[in-house]
Amino acid sequence: MLTALHEKRRFQLILGFLAGIGFGFLLQKAGVAYYHVIINQLLLRDFTVVKVMLTAVVTGMIGVHLLVALGLAQFHPKPGTLGKTIIGALIFGIGFGTLGYCPGTVVAAVGHGALDALFGGVLGMLLGAAAFAVLFPALQSGILQKGDFGDVTLPRLLKVNPWVVVLLLSVAIIGLLYWIEKAGL
């Protein structure tokens, strides 16, 4: 791993900024920074968001697993519990369908001039994050701990070589995307 590079704190801030420029540019060009594209996905009329995400997942999955196999990167799996992952994600989802942007695309939407994204979305997200920080001590000792399953990955859960999952999932996702195109969605 490029540990010496990872430890250059100032330079990493610049790399983060550059990665963000690339990410924002791609989100805007993909169309997923637009309210109607996200809402039409959630109304199951236009599958642009799913196409972008699944293509990114297949591409990223193959490359990152290769980098890890070559000793050039390490995984950062997020731990989960049923109370944390399912309930939190459903709350997020309700907001996602109500706002029509997510935390990355809301910023990209501001980038093409969407003022509802800035004064509604970004402000709401800051308030929501602040409210969570206030309630965190009470939640942490209760619901966030319920049903802990840790940072397990699919290969460890299924007790198979990671490349088996990478290969099968790639085939499944490409097949699904092919079917979505065939269906004209």
Partner: peptide, 17 residues
């Protein structure tokens, strides 16, 4: 509506990590 949606997202994203 955007403000309420944003609030749920900010709250839920931190809840789900």
């Amino acid at each position: 509506v955007a403000l309420v949606g944003g609030f749920f997202i900010g709250f839920g994203a931190r809840w789900a990590g």
